[in-house]
Simulated assay, not measured.
Amino acid sequence: MIVPTMAEMMAQGKQPEVLFWVGSAGSYDDRAKKITRAFVKILQQAKVDFAVLGTEESSTGDAAKRAGNEFLFQMQAIANIEVLNAYEIKTIVTCDPHSFNTLKNEYPELGGKYQVYHHTQFIKKLLDENRLQIDDKKLKGKQLTYHDPCYLGRANEVYESPRDLIRKLGVQLTEMKRHKSTALCCGAGGAQMFKEPEKGDKDINVLRTEDALETHAKIIATACPYCNTMMTDGVKFKEKEDQILVKDIAELIAESNNL
Rank of each mutant, 00 (worst) to 15 (best):
C186Y: 09
C186W: 10
C186V: 11
G187K: 02
G187T: 02
G187V: 02
G190F: 14
A191D: 15
M193G: 06
F194V: 06
E196T: 13
P197D: 13
E198L: 15
E198Y: 13
K199E: 12
G200R: 15
D201F: 13
D201P: 09
K202H: 07
K202C: 02
K202P: 00
D203W: 12
I204R: 08
N205Y: 14
N205G: 12
V206D: 08
V206G: 05
V206I: 15
V206L: 13
L207N: 06
R208T: 05
R208G: 01
T209F: 04
E210C: 06
D211V: 05
D211A: 07
A212T: 07
L213A: 07
E214C: 05
E214T: 09
E214Y: 05
T215K: 06
T215H: 07
T215E: 03
H216R: 13
A217D: 01
A217K: 04
K218P: 04
I220R: 00
A221L: 04
T222I: 14
A223R: 01
A223K: 04
C224T: 09
P225M: 12
P225W: 11
P225A: 13
N228R: 07
T229V: 12
M231I: 11
T232F: 00
T232V: 03
G234V: 00
G234L: 00
G234C: 02
V235C: 02
K236V: 07
K236G: 00
